[in-house]
């Protein structure tokens, strides 16, 4: 085929443009670390990468939710520990007071300690979260869980929180209904009642409360076990979430991010091609220049 000088220069110019564009593209990939910045580069990869990115973002929110709920559960666990200590001490006081060797004055002294323990128990039962909500109130978080007599003001609502993909829910905080004995009686008034019995020297009632204290301590132990189980469920969910997040990040890297080694190699190739094109262009210009 007959090829004119003009066509030769045009062809070499085009080749030079292509080589320069390729070098610029690969340089951009190396400097940004992003291979598929728009879907048209690789629609399937971009789609997979974006899905991974969206799932990673939601996973971050799951992480925050889990962390926040675990903090609140830790608050409940601390409160239950305090309650447990108060009830064990109150049980000891009741045991001592039920003994016939203690006189009315001694019981009066114990009554003051029991009253203090009752106050401690109420404070623990009315533990609040970071936003001022009462942790044991169920859905009525704006109301105190227990009044001064230990009566429960909350409800039986247990809120579920999302901990994983596809709306995986887990029960969050325990409500005050967990602090009931086997007969369904709220245990929070027990220490207050003991204080009254001690101050009125009601030996029969004190003796009768001993079994109720045992039931209350059992109820508190059960509640602590439930909180522990929920914490553990959140830990497992968090573990699974982290593992998923790693997988998603890997997917994102494979699809959207550039492989540094491959990108550097591409850049070197593009640079070589550009240099070769420049050399050829120079030769062509020399060849096609009309000789005088």
């Amino acid at each position: 085929m007959r090829v004119t000088e003009v066509r030769m220069v045009e062809l070499v110019t085009k080749a030079l443009e292509r080589a320069r564009d390729r070098a610029a593209e690969t340089g951009n990939v190396v400097s940004t670390g992003v291979r598929a910045d728009v879907p048209s580069v690789d629609p399937t990869a971009w789609q997979d990468g974006m899905r991974a990115k969206v799932r990673t973002a939601l996973s971050e929110h799951h992480g925050s939710t889990i962390g926040r709920t675990k903090d609140a559960l830790a608050g409940q666990e601390g409160a239950l520990e305090t309650l447990m200590q108060a009830f064990i001490r109150a049980h000891e006081i009741a045991l001592g007071a039920a003994n016939g060797s203690m006189n009315a004055q001694d019981r009066g002294t114990s009554a003051r300690e029991a009253q203090a323990l009752h106050g401690t128990a109420l404070v623990a039962g009315n533990t609040r979260g970071p936003n001022g909500e009462y942790l044991f109130s169920g859905s009525l978080g704006q109301s105190q869980a227990y009044d001064s007599t230990g009566a429960y003001n909350g409800d039986a609502q247990t809120e579920q929180v999302e901990v994983g993909e596809m709306g995986q829910l887990a029960p969050g905080l325990l409500n005050g209904t967990a602090l009931r004995d086997v007969n369904g009686v709220n245990v929070m008034g027990l220490i207050g009642q003991l204080a009254t019995d001690l101050s009125t020297n009601n030996l029969a009632s004190i003796s009768a409360s001993l079994s109720r204290f045992n039931d209350a301590i059992d109820a508190l132990a059960r509640a602590r076990t439930q909180v522990g189980a929920r914490m553990s469920a959140f830990d497992s969910a968090d573990e699974a979430r982290r593992s998923l997040q790693l997988h998603l990040q890997e997917t994102y890297s494979k699809t959207i991010s550039a492989d540094p080694v491959a990108a550097a190699s591409d850049l070197a190739q593009a640079k070589n091609a550009l240099e070769a094109s420049q050399a050829v262009a120079q030769q062509i210009v020399t060849i096609t220049r009309p000789q005088a």
Partner: peptide, 22 residues
């Protein structure tokens, strides 16, 4: 766009863990 849609639903999710949190 996809990320911002996910962020809206993520914010609902976080609100569920602290409904009283301003």
């Amino acid at each position: 766009l996809p990320g911002n849609i996910a962020e809206l639903f993520g914010s609902f999710m976080e609100l569920a863990s602290a409904p009283m949190d301003d």
